[in-house]
């Protein structure tokens, strides 16, 4: 293989990997924030808001990210809202990811048995303490595998952001392809994604093993 190609293209790929990492980071963090809000609304069954959350989750989960991004980037400006590529990507990822995270957290909260909560109450735990010491530790163990799957899913979904004119890994690879380095650039593409996602995947499986408290979340 041509080594000069790799040394030349490495900075491009490194920059694009960094972009993907930044987008994924913000996308995932905001998704968790949005998801937590939605899950709490569902958990406490807050009227009206609950309906809105349901509609949002269904819409976000049943449409592809690429459609959402197209709409954000090409249609919203016509309605008077101009977002740049990066904002679009993060907003799109958050819109999609928020719904998945909400479902993940909801399933965790729901798995905590009624008796656990009642026992806590009878021991004199307040709402906050109940959450902190009884609900969250058990809910997290159940929700973590889904949260990790969603995180990896979102990182993979960032591969479409070149349609909103961002110079991500796919964009770089496609550019180099035109110059006739198909195999090298595609291999670099695969390696970059492995470097990005494999550690996250391994890290989460370690966390999952650690969070399986004895008897719970099994």
């Amino acid at each position: 293989m041509d080594t000069s190609f790799i040394s030349q293209s490495l900075p491009l790929f490194a920059k694009a990997t960094w972009l993907t990492l930044v987008l994924s980071f913000f996308g995932v963090v905001f998704s968790i924030v949005v998801g937590t809000f939605c899950a709490i609304i569902n958990f406490y069954k807050i009227p009206v808001l609950r309906r809105i959350v349901y509609a949002y989750i269904e819409v976000a989960r049943n449409t592809p990210l690429i459609v959402q991004l197209f709409f954000l980037y090409y249609a919203l400006p016509r309605l008077g809202m101009v977002l740049d590529g990066k904002t679009c990507a993060v907003v799109g990822l958050t819109f999609l990811g928020g719904a998945y995270m909400a479902e993940a957290i909801r399933s965790g909260l729901q798995s905590v048995g009624r008796t656990q909560i009642e026992t806590g109450m009878s021991l004199g735990f307040g709402k906050i303490k109940l959450m902190r010491y009884i609900i969250i530790p058990q809910a997290l163990a159940v929700a973590l595998p889904v949260i990790s799957a969603t995180t990896i899913f979102l990182m993979k979904e960032t591969s479409v952001v070149s349609i909103v004119a961002l110079h991500d890994l796919l964009y770089v690879a496609k550019d180099l392809l035109k110059e006739g380095h198909a195999l090298q650039s595609n291999l670099m593409l695969v390696v970059c994604y492995l470097i990005l996602i494999l550690p996250v995947s391994l890290g989460f499986s370690y966390l999952e093993r650690r969070s399986r408290f004895a008897g719970f979340g099994a």
Partner: peptide, 14 residues
């Protein structure tokens, strides 16, 4: 771990 898009790219162009 691999995005589907990367696989599509890989197989189509290589």
């Amino acid at each position: 771990v691999m995005p589907i898009l990367v696989l599509l790219f890989f197989f189509y162009y290589t």
